[in-house]
Simulated scan of single mutants.
Amino acid sequence: MHYQGKLYRALNPIHAREPLSGRGAELYGGRFNPKGTAALYLATSLHTAIREVNQVGDLQPTTIVGYDSDIENVLDGRDSRVLRKFGMTLAGLADPTWRDQMRGGGKAATQTFAATLIAEGFNGLLVRSFARGSSDGDLNLVLWNWSDTPPSRVTLIDDDGCLSKV
């Protein structure tokens, strides 16, 4: 599928100078990227970005950023038929044990799924948010390939250059 529109991210202010970095995900791994693979986790709504950042404990200081995007070759992770082609299910995407599966240097099933998509040339995955309190309408877009040009364009919205002053 092709995704075009606004995207949002809630960042720890320490990382506000690098709003297009996938470095944290690369260092620690995420649900849809193993350690060593950079990923940019974005939300399709401001509400979802806030839910994502506030998954554990109280809301901490947060910098909200917005992006314009135009991204080709995104897998629609809401479609169970499409997922089956890659050996995944909707329940598998939502598996809360993905962190446990990483113990001892292992990979979570969702990370293996993501590696398959990357090898197949997908730029990203549109998927439901699994943050506490989210609903089917709360969506994330996880990107493994992004740049400031097509076919995976993600452009920070910062007309006044505020983040360079942080």
Results as ranks from 00 to 15, higher is better:
T116E: 06
A109I: 00
V166L: 07
Q111F: 03
P150N: 12
D79E: 07
L163S: 10
I157Y: 08
S69Q: 00
S69F: 01
S69W: 02
L143A: 08
K107L: 14
N33C: 06
A109F: 03
G29I: 01
H15S: 12
G105I: 05
E72D: 14
G124F: 05
K107P: 02
A49I: 06
S69K: 00
N54L: 03
M88K: 01
T37C: 11
G57M: 07
E26P: 11
V74I: 15
A10N: 07
Y41W: 07
A39H: 00
L156W: 01
F130D: 11
R84F: 12
L11Y: 02
V154H: 10
M102P: 06
W98Y: 10
A25I: 03
R9W: 04
G161D: 02
S69V: 00
V127D: 02
R99M: 07
D138F: 09
R78H: 08
S45T: 15
Q101H: 04
G133A: 06
D76C: 09
F113I: 02
S152L: 00
A119R: 15
R128F: 12
D159F: 14
L125F: 15
G77I: 08
L27G: 08
E120W: 08
P19T: 01
T63A: 15
D70F: 04
G124P: 14
F86K: 01
A10E: 08
G121R: 11
P34F: 11
I64H: 09
